[in-house]
Amino acid sequence: MRPTLVLLANHATRILLITLVGGFLALALARLAPGFGVDEREFDARLSEDTRAAIRQSHDSERNIFHFYFTWLSGLAHGELGVSPSLNQPVRLLLAERLPVTMKLLAWGLLVGWGMGFGLAVPLAFVRGCAYELGANAFATLFLCIPAAVLALFFLLTRSPSALVVGLVIFPKVFRYARTLLRQTAMLPHVLTARAKGLSGIRIFLWHYLSPAAPQWLALLAVSLSLALSAAVPVEVVCDLPGIGQLAWKAAMARDMYLLVCLTGIVTLATVMTKSAVELLGEFCRVRI
C-alpha cells in the first residue's frame, strides 16, 4: 500500500511542477516576444491622449512576469482565472464555452485515427509482403507528409467534417507503431505456443497480442492525445471552429498573457496527466502479469 501511495504522490508532484513550469515558460515567451504590451487601439487616431495612456497602463501589471504569475496563481487558488484583455471576457467563461468544442474534436479525431491506424495494422500482423502492405504503407506515408493545415483547408473546401483531419494526422503514427508492435508480439514464444495449441484467432489476438502489450498501447494513446492537441490548433484556425486551439492562436497573436498561461496550463496538464496515467496503468499491468 505504502509504495503505491508514494508512487501516486511522486506523480502528483511531477504533474504539479511540470504544469507550473510550463505556465511560467509560456508567460516568459509571450513577455519576450516582439509586440508585447502593444495594443492596436493605440493606432486609432480618434482616441485622446488620456485614453491612449490608459490603454498603455492596462498592460503594466503584465510587465513583471514573476509578479504577474504569482498574482495569477493567487487568483487561481480562489478559482479566478482573470479576464482576457484581447477578448474582454473572463477566461473561465471563454474556456467553458470552447473546451467542449475541442474535446469533441479530439474525441472524434482519436476515434478515427485509432480506428484507421489500428484497423489497417491488424491484418499486417498476420500477412506480409503483399500489395495490401504496400498500399497501407503508402497511404499512411501520404498522410504523414501532408501538414494538418493543408488537410484542414482541403476538408474545408470539400465541406467534410473537420474531426477527420485530426484523425488523419494521428492515423499514420498509430498505424506504424501498431504494425511494429503487433509483428513483434506475433513472434513471441507464448503466441507461437498458443497457435500450436490450436486456440482461436480472436482469443489469441485479444489475450496474447493485446494484453501483454497494454503498457505500450497506453503509451501510444498518450502520444496520440498530444498529437491530436497539436493538430487541433491549425484545424480550428483554418476551419474557424471556436475551440481552445483557435483561442490559443488568437491569444498568441494578441500576446494575451491571461489566456496563454491558462491554455498552456491546460495542455501541459492534459499531456502530463495522460502520461502519468499511462505509466501508472502500465505499472499496474506489469504487476498483474
Partner: peptide, 13 residues
C-alpha cells in the same frame, strides 16, 4: 512583413 503587434511596436514605440 511583420505580424501586427510587432509592426505597431516598431512604429509607435
Amino acid at each position: 512583413p511583420l505580424d501586427f503587434p510587432s509592426l505597431i511596436e516598431r512604429i509607435t514605440r
